[in-house]
Design a binder for these strands. Sequence first.
DNA 1: TTATGATCCGAGGGATTCCTCGGGATTTGT
DNA 2: ACAAATCCCGAGGAATCCCTCGGATCATAA
Lengths: 209, 209
Amino acid sequence: MGRRISRKPRKSPTQARAKATWNAILEAAARVLVQRGYEKATTDRIAERAGVGIGSLYEYFPNKEAIFAILNQQWNEERWSGFQAELASAPQDDLQTLIRSTVRARINATRRNPRLNSALRNLIPLSVTLPQARAIYEDFAEHTVRALQSHARLGDRDPRLVAQVMLHATHAVVDNVAEISPDLLDSPALEDELTLMLYRYVTESGPSD
Amino acid sequence: MGRRISRKPRKSPTQARAKATWNAILEAAARVLVQRGYEKATTDRIAERAGVGIGSLYEYFPNKEAIFAILNQQWNEERWSGFQAELASAPQDDLQTLIRSTVRARINATRRNPRLNSALRNLIPLSVTLPQARAIYEDFAEHTVRALQSHARLGDRDPRLVAQVMLHATHAVVDNVAEISPDLLDSPALEDELTLMLYRYVTESGPSD
DNA sequence: TTATGATCCGAGGGATTCCTCGGGATTTGT
DNA sequence: ACAAATCCCGAGGAATCCCTCGGATCATAA
């Protein structure tokens, strides 16, 4: 009865109450993950917090990893859609405001649940995380490249690399701030400074180099 | 015999061979952590990789967490000393070169072992990580503030906040790159772009705002 | 109503993990 | 050389943890 071998496929919920327990389990998983960490987030504890039997949990999720994989997927989709919505309602003509709305969108996307964001981000075991995020990343990188080519003065620098650095910087800083000092996400200072930094980075006018 | 209750204090190695096994255990822990992850890095496996009995391991480390706490501490100290050495041998007059050497130092500090850096960084259970790192952070922030006040033209912006953003950005980007595409650490491009970005960020308050 | 399927349940098995404990081997001090 | 201190060891116990399985309970359709 070797563990982690059978992998029988699970049902997906059809009735209303089934969908309810399905949600309850994921929500409980998120809460337990945030306040106990991945290791302490045992399936038994999750089921208990969700108010369902452990059997019900394994009725819909083949194993522990799957729960957090789906949780991560949900969080990514939610973040990404919010991100797009924020960008869609922004003026596309001026570079500085374009950058600002991107930054704001990124901050807001994380601000919805900084703790969950950090926890999920640190879940290395879930190699599911990367490929999915990578697609989004690429897509967004192209967007940025096009915006740079039509609005920025880059001289002879490689717009592709510049876009990479911009994305890396934005994402990394926001995620880092979310982890170290989440309160800063609510102040406008972060948005201002990040915007200024990125704008100057792609606007050439200087004495040097 | 409740686990995790006794916490009897452990000896510290005095003889040479003891010091050797002590090191062997920590090195094995690092290797196992990097290639299997924290969960799979069991004390039994570490002892085996180190070529010592499990008993010997618990002769010097009270529990699993302690091993990685010390490992993290070692890595921090090593990184920090290398960082300072790199900075000490850099000219302090020109702002751009100053920034460049800071960036280079930060990259090199991580490049020594990117995989271990990432793994350790993602070890949330070790709340030991933060307070220790925080001290270093503060110290370095002051350094930066002084450098900015004497070399940069910040206008009426708050140098303290600017320093925070610079540090956040540098650290976050380097750590992120180390995790996503470690190869980039070896190319000069990252150093160039980061330097450019930071330099422009604190120079010339040009057209906007 | 009754049959069929969906949903829920939780005791407990197999596996694994952390760590102890008693004692053997080696080094050091005298 | 002998005692004390230090170091090394690994079988195995207690505690979890993940997950299964057989059956109870509920919903829906005929």
